[in-house]
Design a protein around this nucleic acid. Structure first.
Lengths: 320, 320
DNA sequence: GATCTTTACGCCATGCGTAACGATA
DNA sequence: TATCGTTACGCATGGCGTAAAGATC
């Protein structure tokens, strides 16, 4: 059994789906089937129960996954770290992000830190009124922005998270208690003016037309940053599109309602093509290893953190 | 980088010698060289400093070894464990050993236990007056004996430890303060009668002739077990050959002096060929994974244990 | 010159993709 | 019939051994 097999096994144990596993590892489905079968032969017992409709781990497979996950991560981290040390990846990396977006790249930052213990990471705040300025003025090495980015001097790298398109409204707003809204409803209520921002980029977040082609007006209060925006929303002066993840962190008075018929928004890493350093490369590699997270991952992780905190508290009480 | 490469890297990091590494992994020296070079290319920095006379780890290599060792062992243990569970390796395994020999197989037992958590291991005492009886009477599943074993119904498996041939004498004996003795000196003083034991097997421990061909007399007190033997030795009534490891555990009054011109003694696992169960197979596999230990390993490990004990004590004191 | 590592070269095992097949809802 | 897992088959990458060369004492 080699590392490649283990990688396939672990991915399948996570996805529980041969097709998605194959996609995410960039191999054919057949290869996944072969690799798993080979391991089951060598282990001498079934690791997955599968029909053409359902894949589940056997108890044996679940135990093996727990063991291998730890070992595999240890090895990969060790290799990446050695590689970083060898290439002299050291210094400070500045990862610019807008508002709450920073919280969705913490996984990547953690990964990067464990692989590159000699490096510092800073997360300066950037504003959507000037998404590319920090890179071009060398105030950030990498920024986290929704994609797509099409700038001749910039490179768009791996996607770090995907969330649903949503709208932020005041808690008093008529749509505030809806589970979701349509693009048409959104178009009827939107009220925000982001000022002069690169048009094709803004279009992704603030489309100028609905799916049916109706124009969406660009009028409302002028805002430059996410915090400005949320303040005005809370005050009932502004209704704006936003990533659904803002709902998890938004202040009281602000409600975030998903738009069910809009495509997913994707945030990617972006950097100056001619300023790509080993540090930047290492960070994008960390992002590729972690893979894009979703709001669901984030919520799950928050729950875990809460559980850990609870456990520790109980432990503390028990000892006291 | 695959597991095979990591295995080669770890072995070289341990042996610091391309030739021995190749031997122990049953591959060519060239392969070792290629594998290491490949990893250094991928990591982007040197892992070993080497001349044709000396091989040492670089700091980078040393750090990588620490990381990979943990991950590699985790994965191997997980795989072995899964294999054991799948094949239903469960029940009790009885590993017979003579006297202190049991202490030199504890590494293998530990390994086996961690890979087969569902199994119990017992270590019944056996006596050199009847080395094969316990197997044939089904009182033990495996025994640990010095090799070679040539019995039609028994299989000699992996070597578990190697120690120097030595002689046990009373602390008052004339040779007691010698750093080592020759076979000829040994022949002049030996005084023990093991009774009717399989001759070819006894010959290994108690040669009938010196290197120069001189007969070694078989007379002295009759003994059946190691403890009997040591008691008589302490009383000055007996002088007997023994494995050097006995010196580490021998009671006061007994001194163990190595014989410098005798070949190394090797202890191997032995079992009934027609009674080989999955449990026995799993145990021999554990032995192969751990590899033969030497007295040096044992002493080093004992020191570590002492250190750990000391640390824990200090911790305890600090907390109290 | 003996010992140890590296390089050169060729073989073939095996990882992998394509395509056809089988099963399930 | 659409979706998903398995089997069959063929190609080529790369692991590996052999043999010779290079380095160091």
């Amino acid at each position: 059994v080699e590392l490649r097999d283990i990688e396939i096994f672990l991915m399948l144990a996570q996805e529980l789906h041969f097709g998605r596993t194959a996609e995410r590892l960039h191999v054919s489905q057949a290869r996944v089937s072969q690799a798993i079968k080979k391991q089951e032969r060598q282990i001498g017992g079934g690791l997955f129960e599968r029909t053409s409709r359902n894949v589940t781990l056997t108890p044996l497979g679940a135990q093996l996954r727990d063991d291998l996950r730890v070992g595999y991560d240890t090895i990969q981290t060790g290799l990446t770290r050695a590689s970083g040390v060898a290439r002299g990846v050291t210094g400070t990396l500045r990862v610019g992000a807008m508002g709450f977006d920073s919280l969705l790249v913490l996984d990547v930052v953690d990964r990067f830190r464990s692989c590159n213990p000699e490096c510092d990471v800073e997360i300066p705040e950037i504003h959507f009124s000037d998404p590319f300025g920090p890179l071009r003025r060398d105030e950030a090495d990498i920024v986290v922005l929704w994609r797509p980015i099409r700038e001749p001097d910039l490179t768009e790298g791996p996607v770090v998270f995907k969330v649903r398109h949503a709208m932020a409204v005041s808690a008093n707003h008529g749509l505030a208690d809806r589970a979701s809204v349509s693009m048409d409803e959104y178009a009827d209520h939107v009220a925000v003016d982001p000022g002069a921002v690169t048009e094709y980029w803004l279009e992704t977040m603030l489309p100028s037309r609905t799916l049916s082609g109706r124009l969406i007006p660009r009028r409302g209060p002028r805002v430059r940053t996410v915090h400005e925006l949320l303040t005005l929303v809370a005050a009932g002066k502004c209704v704006s599109p936003i990533g659904e993840h803002a709902g998890t962190f938004a202040p009281p008075g602000v409600v975030v309602v998903p738009i069910h018929d809009a495509p997913l928004l994707e945030w990617a890493l972006v950097w100056r093509t001619d300023a790509e350093t080993p540090l930047i490369h290492a960070f994008t590699q960390a992002a590729r290893n972690v893979g894009p997270s979703t709001l669901h991952d984030l919520v799950g992780k928050a729950d875990q953190d809460v559980n850990v905190a609870t456990d520790m508290q109980e432990l503390g009480n028990g000892a006291a």
